[in-house]
Design a protein around this nucleic acid. Structure first.
Length: 766
DNA sequence: GGCTCTTTCGTTTTT
DNA sequence: CGAAAGAGCC
């Protein structure tokens, strides 16, 4: 087995896979076979008898990564891999808390709040505290709470800096109390509860530390403070446990969400890592693309250091196109995409990437008008759709009627004459008695009370009717019995929602068979070490979840596909963030403009520029064969035409790997001085560029934006590119005043925008 | 209770 | 500009 297992690994991969029982940090470059190393290592450890399947824990960030690991392992191993501790941080915490719910102080049937549930819960708290929602914006407060939890801070641990923060902490405390009362936990709470229980319960901690001999962490650069602290409890540093952390500091693009790249350095130190193994052999991209990636990321200072290399040839150079407008940028993408498709690249191997979702619009319309199939990632996911959340709320009430979030969501949906005042009366009663809404229904009298009692009866009837039924039958019964189906059937445009509800029933049906939840999905029996001191023998067999509870968990922890319009061969449109971990033959990287990318707002953060550069690095390394870079001199943004300079990142790429399809110019403004057609005719010698392709139904390009003349005669125009001795290249955003008072608003690259007095400032038109 | 008008706001978002 | 959320009206 070993001979085949270890075949075709390069020396570094082999070193990582066959490392002994010691902790290691693997610096895994993009496309370096990271997942293969992780899975092969697990298989190797097991096949060598170094550890049993119960002694391995492997943690990922995404369900997708966890699933892939399980799938690959299932093909390599004779074990039931589902019983192994392989999953996302949150998934494993959930599993842990289902086993130790009592010790964790949770009700057995606790439910998980997703982000929108959590914001809604915070909102209720703010209302109950009679606070101003303008001043304490629910979303921002929820964010504050989540961040505190990710630093392992409870309300009592926070020392408020000012009056505002003191109130935030009060809201946090009230929110905690409310969640506890309702038996719900948010995402951060899953992690924090697990962390606290492991921290405070020595017997439990020692049990798990004895159990897990090998712990593997994927995408380690994305771990936050709490996750790292959590890891240290499950795998004690400098102990007989071995942790393999795999990550790439250059691909850390979630610092804005709390990821701490410094955890990689901390890990080396804390775990006494003896050597850093670097996986630098890239199996994805051709030479020019890697040269560009290496060159660009070399501009970052805080790095562990790594240079990607390939055995493949240099391949195609990167093509750069500077379009006069976002509209024409889109048209160029369309034409190039079509050319690539005709040359044999499947559309699904063509990806159009952008920094922000708003940028997809122009590109979508170009593709749409030309009849090119495309698929946009992002937006609502399946389990986040309103109708699905409604159905899930009914299902959750069956499991846990004290879940006030679910109660409020559907108490009057479909409408059953329970208005805001009835709900308020109920909430008052619940607050007064410290009980859930469900428990307080009898406290409301009169017509409102009767209507509420009717709702309670409906849910109880549903529970009785679904008793002993299969998951599919339960979901079906709830969708019908709740009145949701009828509601959407009578709605003139409810057909799509009905389809989604049907889809939910289908998902429920296949869930039981595919996910295999039920008796055989229980964690492996207590490992060969036996139970820890003072622990019951069935410590880790956990509670057997009902299929419904398992399904609800699945819905909360895995929001489902972004968009399911699968099947058709379509061009892929997504943000760079969404593209992380993916690869395509041809990548279009659009909107390479100062302000957009690097994004102005991101630059305000600490390390903002370096994170933007890492994002650029991630984007570049998505491409296998060809990378297309583009920017627009003018762009419609927030209802206004904006003028941008080309991104500094373009200047950080090696000239030798770039092929400019439009003349490389001093600044974006100079495009206006060129005859319009020239950019097209210089399209890299491409015969196709100048003519309207027969297949394209796109409207002919509009004339270039007429430079707006201002009243004075400074010679400057809006949109003009200028040079300033101190600030460098800039673009004129606006001009005001006359004569000696004339001022110009100039957008400079790294210096931001400035108002300059024209009488004083030395500006040279470019 | 549900529709329409108005206001507001605009970076990325694994769980 | 365009989406989304809230206020106000029927």
């Amino acid at each position: 087995m070993n001979s085949t297992l270890l075949d075709h690994l390069n020396p570094e991969q082999l070193a990582a896979v066959t490392l002994g029982d010691e902790s290691a940090l693997i610096l895994a470059g993009a496309g370096s076979g990271k997942t293969r190393v992780l899975t092969t290592r697990i298989a190797w450890l097991l096949s060598q008898g170094r550890v049993g399947p119960g002694g391995v824990m492997a943690v990922t960030f995404t369900n997708k990564a966890a699933k892939e690991m399980l799938t690959r392992l299932a093909a390599m191993l004779p074990y039931n891999v589902r019983g192994m501790w392989i999953g996302t941080f949150h998934g494993l915490c959930h599993r842990f808390l289902r086993s130790h719910w009592k010790a964790a102080g949770l009700p057995q049937g606790f439910q998980i709040l997703d982000v929108s549930d959590s914001v809604a819960a915070v909102k209720r708290v703010i209302k109950a505290m009679n606070l101003d929602e303008e001043r304490y914006v629910p979303k921002a407060v929820a964010h504050f709470i989540a961040h505190a939890k990710e630093r392992a801070e409870r309300p009592g641990d926070i020392d408020p800096r000012d009056a505002q923060e003191r109130v935030l902490v009060e809201i946090y405390a009230a929110y905690e109390a409310q969640c506890q009362r309702e038996g719900v936990v948010d995402f951060a709470e899953l992690m924090l509860r697990t962390y606290e229980l492991m921290r405070d319960d020595a017997a439990l901690r020692s049990h798990y530390q004895q159990r897990f001999r090998h712990v593997l962490v994927d995408e380690f650069q994305d771990t936050n403070t709490l996750q790292y602290a959590w890891l240290k409890l499950f795998a004690a540093p400098r102990s007989s446990q071995a942790v393999m952390a795999v990550g790439d500091d250059d691909q850390s693009i979630y610092a804005f969400r709390g990821a701490v790249v410094a955890n990689m350095h901390a890990f080396e130190r804390d775990y006494g890592v003896r050597q850093l193994i670097k996986l630098e052999e890239n199996y994805r991209s051709c030479g020019h693309i890697l040269d560009a990636a290496n060159h660009l990321i070399g501009h970052n200072e805080r790095r562990l250091g790594k240079t990607l290399r390939t055995a493949a040839g240099q391949g195609e150079m990167l093509r750069v196109f500077e379009a006069p407008s976002d509209f024409e940028e889109a048209r160029w993408v369309l034409e190039e995409a079509h050319a690539q498709h005709r040359a044999g690249t499947p559309r699904a191997q063509l990806a159009v990437l952008y920094r922000s979702n708003a940028q997809s619009r122009v590109i979508e319309s170009a593709l749409f008008n030309a009849g090119v199939p495309y698929r946009v990632y992002g937006g609502l996911r399946f389990f986040e759709r309103a109708e699905i959340k409604h159905a899930l709320a009914y299902l959750r009430l069956l499991e846990n009627p004290n879940d006030d979030t679910s109660f409020l969501r559907v108490v009057n949906f479909p409408a059953r004459a329970i208005g805001a005042r009835s709900v308020e009366a109920l909430q008052d009663a619940a607050r007064a008695s410290g009980r859930s809404l469900w428990q307080s229904v009898s406290a409301v009298t009169g017509r409102a009370g009767a209507a509420l009692a009717g709702f309670v009866k409906l849910v109880e009837d549903l529970r009785a009717a679904t008793e002993g039924q299969t998951l599919k039958q339960i979901v079906e019964c709830v969708v019908e019995g709740s009145g949701l189906a009828a509601h959407y059937r009578s709605d003139k445009d409810g057909s799509e929602r009905l389809e989604n509800l049907d889809e939910l029933i289908t998902a429920a049906e296949s869930f039981v068979t595919q996910e295999g939840f039920g008796r055989d999905a229980v964690a492996l029996p207590v490992d060969e070490l036996g139970p820890g001191p003072g622990l019951t023998p069935d410590l880790e067999t956990g509670e057997i979840m009902s299929p419904l509870a398992a399904f609800l968990t699945h819905a909360s922890l895995e929001a489902g596909e972004h968009q399911a319009q699968a099947g058709q061969d379509a061009v892929q449109l997504m943000t760079i963030h969404a593209a992380k971990g993916l690869e395509f033959d041809v990548v279009f990287l659009t909107g390479l403009e100062e302000g957009l990318f690097p994004n102005d707002r991101a630059l305000e953060d600490h390390d903002g520029l370096e994170e933007e550069r890492r994002l650029m690095y991630v984007a570049i390394t998505r491409a296998r064969k060809q990378l297309m870079l583009s920017l627009a001199q003018t762009r419609m943004l927030h209802g206004q035409t904006r003028y941008h300079l080309r991104s500094r990142f373009l200047d950080e790429l090696p000239e030798a790997s770039l092929k400019w399809l439009s003349p490389k110019q001093g600044g974006f403004g100079s495009g206006f001085q060129q005859p319009y057609a020239s950019a097209w005719q210089r399209g890299g010698g491409s015969a196709r560029a100048a003519q309207q392709p027969a297949w394209s139904h796109a409207a002919p390009p509009p004339p270039p934006p007429p430079p707006r003349k201002t009243e004075h005669d400074s010679g400057l125009r809006v949109g003009q590119a200028v040079f300033h001795n101190k600030f460098g290249e800039g673009a004129v955003l606006a001009i005001e005043g006359q004569g000696a008072d004339a001022r110009a608003h100039i957008q400079f690259g790294r210096h931001g925008s400035k108002w300059l007095a024209l009488a004083v400032a030395k500006l040279t038109p470019i």
